[in-house]
Each structure stands twice: as structure tokens, then as C-alpha cells.
């Protein structure tokens, strides 16, 4: 009564909502569709990598770490617990070796789960640790 006009303008919508289906997406039961080009988890394709260090230099967070054993071999580490998902590494890579895929449900109780370490051998076979 104190705000009858105000009530009327909002109450129409409220009553409509009451008898209509909620807009809630029933995650996790319902599938959530991601748009094309979503910047998700960065993933390395070790066969293509040439250990050129370009992505490590460009990474703003230090999520990419390359340890070179010698000229041809090395370890390539990605820590998504540090990553800021800026896609600079994908842009910098001349060999299409690193991609941001649409994987995004990555929560874990162990920080080590976020670290993926690849053994990279230029022109060689892939070996994963």
C-alpha cells in the first residue's frame, strides 16, 4: 500500500516468474555449452614443440617453464594453477604446438594435479612422465 505503483510494476514480472520455468542451468546434470574460441586450459602437443622458448618468454605469469637438458631434449612444464589464460603462448607459437582447449572444470585438492610435465624431444618420439 505504501508503494502500490511500485509494487504493480515489479509484481507483474514477479508473478510471471513464479509460474514460468526458472532460467537456471541445472549444472552439473545439464550440459553447459561453451562458445567457440573459449580460452580454457593450455595443452601442449609435444611432437610439434621445438623448445624455442618463445612461449616461456611471453608468458606473463611464469606458468610455462622449459628446462633444456641439451640442444634437442628438454622438459616442458605447464602449471594451470598459475596460468592467466591470456592465449599469448598460442599466438606466439610458430609451430601450433600449444593450444587453449575448452577444458575448464579443473578444480582439485592437490596443487600438483595442475602441473603437467612433458618430455620433449625435437624430431623424436613423445614420452610422458
Amino acid at each position: 500500500m505504501t508503494s502500490l505503483i511500485g509494487y504493480l510494476s515489479a509484481s507483474k514480472q514477479a508473478l510471471k516468474n513464479l509460474f514460468s520455468k526458472p532460467v537456471t542451468v541445472m549444472f552439473p546434470a545439464e550440459h553447459v555449452s561453451l562458445p567457440k574460441g573459449y580460452r580454457g586450459t593450455p595443452v601442449l602437443i609435444p611432437e610439434k614443440c621445438t623448445l624455442c622458448m618463445k612461449c616461456e618468454r611471453v608468458c606473463p605469469t611464469g606458468a610455462i617453464l622449459i628446462e633444456k637438458l641439451d640442444k634437442k631434449n628438454g622438459y616442458f612444464t605447464i602449471d594451470i594453477g598459475k596460468c592467466c589464460y591470456c592465449q599469448e603462448c598460442e599466438k606466439a607459437c610458430n609451430f601450433d604446438a600449444i593450444h587453449l582447449i575448452d577444458k575448464w572444470l579443473t578444480a582439485s585438492d592437490n596443487k600438483e594435479d595442475f602441473v603437467t610435465k612433458h618430455f620433449v624431444q625435437r624430431n623424436g618420439k613423445k614420452k610422458e612422465e
Binding site: 511500485g6 509494487y7 514480472q13
Partner: peptide, 14 residues
């Protein structure tokens, strides 16, 4: 426009 209509009218809020 709907938000504007409601938020500029609701008296308890105003």
C-alpha cells in the same frame, strides 16, 4: 528499460 521502470518507482527502495 524494465529495470529502470521498477527501480525508479519502488517506494521502499527510493
Amino acid at each position: 528499460s524494465k529495470h529502470k521502470e521498477v527501480m525508479e518507482k519502488e517506494k521502499t527502495f527510493l
